[in-house]
Amino acid sequence: MVFGLLVTAVMGQRSLESAYRTTGKEVVAVFEAQREALQSCSAVLLQGRDEIGYGVVISADGYLLTKASLVLEVDGLAVTVGRERFKEVEVVAVDSAWDVALLKVAAEGLKPVEYAETSAVAQGTWVAANGATSRTRRRLLPGIISANSREIPPAGGAALGVVLKVEGGRLAIEEVAEHSGAADAGLKKGDVIVKVGGTAVAGVEEIAEALKESKAGDVVRVEYLRGEREFAVDVRVSTRGEMFQIEMDRNDMMSGDFSKRRSGFPRVIQHDILASAQTMGGPLLDLDGKCLGMNIARANRTENYAIPLEELQEIAAGLMKQVAKPAVESGE
């Protein structure tokens, strides 16, 4: 019978009806069990009526993980879990190396994500993740694991987030990038950088050399002069591509929207789901509905990255510790 249907479709049409394409509704319907898992273990992040991303439910009492850069500058962030809407969302802690935020909503009895045994599944293995969402219903997009698990080094290298000029043999800050480690650490235009990571620096190349081994999220000691006084401060290192506009290449132009932060991850697994920058942050599930990782970046038209479940659990544990013991303001 089914076979007969296909013949009809072939004879009657020159192309496959959209419902039967890989992301068509009839094919997606085969993944109903995984969709039901998404319904309970994924959260929808909203700004007003706009969906801006997804999250992973990690506790019954309302702790969620998501991609930090999706939520850090959002006013009026709301979250839907299951069918329930939460308008009070607290950003509890952030792991900037991985671009992961821990969120809290006042919920009870949520069904946390179940982790798979390992993220080391063969390429070609089916995976599923959040696609669009109706008000009450999660939708699913299927795909496969599509490349080797690996580190994604920071695009353009690691950087403090300052534009420098050499003035009379001194390295003066000309500009501080918004939301950079340098801005967070309080560096200002006119400050003169003396040492980075304990190494005296007098040129831009020497700073690059001092940061060569650094990864996004690492902290490096920066000693600087403001006026006559000398100060020292810990500065978080970020990927250059995240802080400064890097020129789009042709592949970027044909990729539609991609995640602004899409590099500088210590390890990712990769999949081919037809995702977008607005569908990151949610869980990546296997056919058992178990979590292989968390979607962290839409890199381009063909590549999406997810944090593997092993690292994700460590990140979650680290962030939960900060809940137990709020970080003490560092200061002299």
Partner: peptide, 16 residues
């Protein structure tokens, strides 16, 4: 080299 070539799964949706 670390990534390797990228595999993607789909269906044949049009023949011309």
């Amino acid at each position: 080299e670390k990534r390797g070539s990228v595999v993607r799964l789909g269906r044949l949706v049009r023949i011309a």
